[in-house]
C-alpha cells in the first residue's frame, strides 16, 4: 500500500517540477483572468444599477461568487489534461505505461494534482489583487457547515473535472482529432458549470434540470456552498449525494473507455 502510494507520490513530485517550468504561463493566464473579472464587475455593476438585489442576491454576493469561481478554476479545474492524454495516445508515449506496474488514471491524476497545486498557488496573486480592489463587496457567509460540506464537494469536483478531461483524452483511441469535442464540452461547461452567470438566475425549471447534470458539480456546486447561494445544509447534502453518484458514474465510464480503447490501440511509435 505504502509502496503504491510512494509510486504516485513520486509522479506528483515530478509533476510539481515540470509544472513549475510553466509558472509564467499559469501566472499570465491568471493575470488574463483578471481582465475577465473586470468585464464581470463592469457588466454586473451596470446591471445592478437601480436594483439592490438580482435573484435575491446583492451585487457584493454576486461579485464574491465570481471571485471564488476564478480561484476554484485554478485550484480544481482541468486545463489541458485532455490534450496531454490525447497526445500520449497519438504519439505512442502511452505504450510505456502499458508495460509498467502503474495505473494510468492514478498516474495522470497525481500529475493533475501537482499541476493544480502550482496553478492554485499562483492564482492567489491575481485573486489577492482582485480582493484588494473589491474587499468592500466581497464577503463569505460565516456558517461552519459550509466548510464541512464544501470541502468534500470541492474534492469531488476536482475528481469530476479530471475524470471528464480524462474521458475526452481517451477519445483519441477512436478519433484522430478531439479538439472540437473538447471545446464543445468546454462551452457547455462554461454555461452549465456557472462560469457565465450564477445558475440560480436561470428559470427555476432549467435550474432543477441542471442540478442533475455533472456540469453543476464541476465547480458551481462548491462555489455555491461557499458563497451562500445554496441556502441550507439539507440542500447541500442532497447535492453532495448526487455529486457522489456522478463521481462513481464518471469513473465507471473512464474505466470502460480505457478497456475498450486499449483493444483498439495499435501501439505505434513510443
Amino acid at each position: 500500500m505504502i509502496a503504491t502510494l510512494n509510486k504516485y507520490w513520486q509522479s506528483f513530485l515530478v509533476g510539481i517540477q515540470s509544472n513549475i517550468v510553466y509558472r509564467w504561463n499559469f501566472f499570465l493566464r491568471g493575470l488574463f483572468s483578471l481582465t475577465h473579472l473586470i468585464v464581470v464587475v463592469a457588466l454586473w455593476s451596470a446591471a445592478y444599477h437601480g436594483h439592490p438585489t438580482i435573484g435575491g442576491f446583492s451585487l457584493g454576493a454576486t461579485l464574491t461568487y465570481f471571485v471564488v469561481m476564478l480561484g476554484l478554476q485554478y485550484f480544481i479545474g482541468a486545463f489541458n489534461e485532455d490534450y496531454q492524454i490525447s497526445e500520449e495516445i497519438r504519439n505512442g508515449l502511452i505504450n510505456q505505461f502499458l508495460l509498467k506496474p502503474i495505473n494510468y488514471f492514478a498516474y495522470r491524476f497525481s500529475i493533475f494534482i501537482s499541476a493544480r497545486t502550482v496553478s492554485g498557488l499562483l492564482i492567489l496573486i491575481p485573486v489577492g489583487v482582485a480582493y484588494a480592489f473589491l474587499h468592500h463587496d466581497i464577503s463569505l457567509p460565516p456558517e461552519s457547515w459550509r466548510l464541512w460540506i464544501g470541502l468534500p464537494a470541492l474534492l469531488m469536483s476536482a475528481l469530476i473535472q479530471f475524470t471528464i478531461a480524462y474521458c475526452f483524452g481517451l477519445l483519441s483511441f477512436w478519433f484522430l482529432e478531439i479538439q472540437s469535442f473538447i471545446i464543445l464540452s468546454y462551452a457547455i461547461e462554461t454555461l452549465l458549470g456557472g462560469q457565465m452567470f450564477p445558475l440560480d438566475l436561470m428559470p427555476a425549471n432549467l435550474y432543477r434540470i441542471s442540478e442533475y447534470l455533472p456540469y453543476f458539480y464541476q465547480m458551481y456546486f462548491p462555489a455555491a456552498i461557499f458563497t451562500g447561494r445554496i441556502a441550507t445544509p439539507a440542500q447541500a447534502l442532497s447535492g453532495l449525494a448526487i455529486q457522489a453518484c456522478w463521481v462513481v458514474a464518471l469513473l465507471a465510464i473512464a474505466a470502460l473507455l480505457w478497456r475498450r480503447g486499449l483493444r483498439r490501440h495499435t501501439a505505434v511509435g513510443g
Binding site: L43, W44, A46, A47, Y48, H49, G50, H51, I54, G55, A187, T190, L191, M196, F197, L201, M202, P203
Partner: peptide
C-alpha cells in the same frame, strides 16, 4: 452562450 447571458441578465433588469 453569450446571447443566453444577455437573456438571463435582462430577465432581472431592463437596462445595462
Amino acid at each position: 452562450v453569450n446571447i443566453l447571458l444577455i437573456g438571463i441578465i435582462y430577465a432581472h433588469t431592463s437596462s445595462i
